[in-house]
Structures are given as structure tokens and as C-alpha cells.
Amino acid sequence: MDKSAINRITAIRDKYKAIAEEAGDNYNLFKVIGLTSEEVRIHSAFLANLLNPQAEHGQKSKFLKLFCEQFDIPQFDHDSGKVTIEKYIGKKEEINGGRIDIDIFDKNGFHIIIENKIYANDQENQLIRYSQYGKKQPKYKLFYLTLYGYMPDEKKSCNYDKKQISLKEGNDYFLLSYHYDILNWLEHCREKAATKPLLREGISHYINLIKYLTNQNTNYMMNQEIIKEFLKPENVQSLANIKECLVKTQIELQYQFWECLINELKKKGFD
């Protein structure tokens, strides 16, 4: 790879750095207060608030209606919807009980059950327990929400041989992703809140947080442009050499770091 190609990559990096600074993309309230991946305190709380027709956002059931439309829940009466976070459904036993992250229900007893996963692992028989709770209601729909729409740990959360229970995705539960599904819904919510500046900006900060957690910020676009530069015919032949050099560069950087640390510790009297 010649010097001009390296200069173009540097220019791409500088361009996106300037874009991020100009747009204020590096500033996010959730990152400032150090709460980016708290499932209950941040993510479940924020989503539940938007979905709650009685919440202080003042938009009544607009956001819940958008949710029902986007995720195919036409029977749900959004105007009468009520939302509970960490819904206690009884003592945790083999296939019953526990706490549901978000439970939304209407006057007809229809329950929308959302299991919200950012980084936490599945619990034993978790979706089975929530499915059993749903089956006790007149009607329900169970969602498994993760950053990228991952499948749950089926052996741990969906299958229980002792009772011959096996939940199937697309039938007993449905996958949702922050990366696409929730982000798309939030964009529509922001459109509805266009004339409410504080609400609109609150949603914008949360959208920015989701993009940060799912690598969709300006760094993602920058990397895509750099990849295009690498894939130009005149640069492809150099990729193998670049990869080898990158590994050796990482090794050298680590060596220099530890060497520098040792020297600084010696200066301060450590042996």
C-alpha cells in the first residue's frame, strides 16, 4: 500500500472525527453518568416509560401504538395499556415464577411480555417460566430482546425435558433487536415527539446510546469507508502484509507499554 493510500485513510479518519465533533455525537448523557448497559435502571426503565400511556411524556398511547403496529400486535388495546417493570409473578420454581423485565397489559387481559437482555446471561428455564405465566392470561405475546436479535440459550431457557417443554422461536416467543427493531421504533417515536423539544432530545440521547452499544455511530461509517479503500484493486495485494504488520505492531506497542510502566515504577522506588 503506497503512501497516498495511507494519507487517504488518515483523511477519512480526520473527516469523521470532525463530523462527530460538529454533530456532538461524542456527547451522551447516559455515557456521562456512566450508565450505558444497566438493563433495569436504564434500558427497561426508558423503554417502559415510552410505552406507558400514563407516563409524564404526555403522548398518551402514541408510542405504544407504534410498538404494536411495528411488531404485529393488532389485538392489543393500546389506549388502556399499563406497564410494569420487574413484574413479580411468584416464587421462582422449576417452570414458574420470577420477575419479568417489562410487562404491558390492556383492559382485555392481553399481555406483552419483554425479556430484556443487554449483556446478562439467560437464567434457568427463564423463557419457559414467562411463557407459563403468559398462558395463564387471556392472550399474550413474549419477546426476547437483545442488542443484535440473538437467540436465547435454548437448552437452558427454552427446553425442559422433565416436563417435555420446548419453546419455538416465531411461535412461543419472538426475537427483537436493539440494533434494528428498537432503533427503528425509537426513530418513529422521535418523529411523533418533533414538537416536544425536551422529549425529542431525550429520545435522541437514547438513540445515540443504542447506536453506541451496537456500533452504529460515526466510527462504523468511518470503518466502512476505510474498508472500501482497502478493497481497491491497487491495495488488495497489500492486505496480507498489512495484517502481518498490524499483529507485530500490537506486540511492539504492548512491549513498549510494559517497558514504560516498569521504568516509571522504578523511578518511584518500586522494585
Results as ranks from 00 to 15, higher is better:
H43N: 03
Q164A: 14
P197D: 00
N26D: 11
G24F: 05
L253N: 12
Y178L: 07
T214G: 10
K3G: 05
E252S: 15
I226R: 08
W258K: 10
F30P: 14
T249W: 06
K3W: 06
Q75W: 09
K139H: 06
F63Y: 07
E234V: 05
H43Y: 09
S80G: 08
V236S: 01
A120R: 11
K196Q: 09
G58K: 05
K155V: 03
E22Q: 12
H205T: 12
G97I: 07
K162L: 15
Q216V: 15
A11Y: 10
N219S: 12
K92H: 01
N208G: 13
K268E: 07
P152D: 02
N159L: 12
K65M: 08
Q126L: 04
Y160C: 02
K163G: 13
R13C: 15
K211Q: 13
D14Q: 10
E39W: 01
E124T: 13
I104H: 06
F143S: 04
L142M: 02
I33D: 10
N208Y: 08
Y255W: 01
Q254H: 08
A55D: 11
F67Y: 13
Y160R: 01
C245N: 14
Y150L: 15
L145C: 02
K135R: 15
K17G: 12
K82F: 05
K243I: 12
P197K: 01
K232Y: 04
S157L: 05
E191D: 12
C68D: 13
Y180K: 08
Y220S: 10
A5D: 04
R99H: 13
Q164P: 15
L265W: 05
K17W: 04
M1R: 14
K267C: 03
T195A: 14
F105K: 12
K17M: 05
K117Q: 11
R8W: 00
Y178R: 08
D172Y: 01
P233L: 06
A194V: 11
K60W: 08
D103H: 09
P53E: 00
Q216S: 09
L127T: 11
Q132Y: 09
N28P: 01
N159W: 07
Q237A: 15
K82A: 08
S238C: 03
I9R: 02
Y220A: 03
R129C: 00
D122H: 04
S157Q: 04
K232G: 04
L186P: 10
I95H: 00
Q75S: 14
Y206D: 06
L213K: 00
E94I: 10
A240C: 00
I128F: 02
N235S: 04
H205G: 11
D181K: 01
I104C: 13
A11E: 07
I113H: 06
K248T: 02
R190F: 02
A23K: 15
D25K: 08
I95A: 00
K266I: 06
G149M: 06
R8M: 00
W258A: 13
K15D: 09
E154W: 03
K211P: 05
I95N: 00
I165A: 01
Y140K: 02
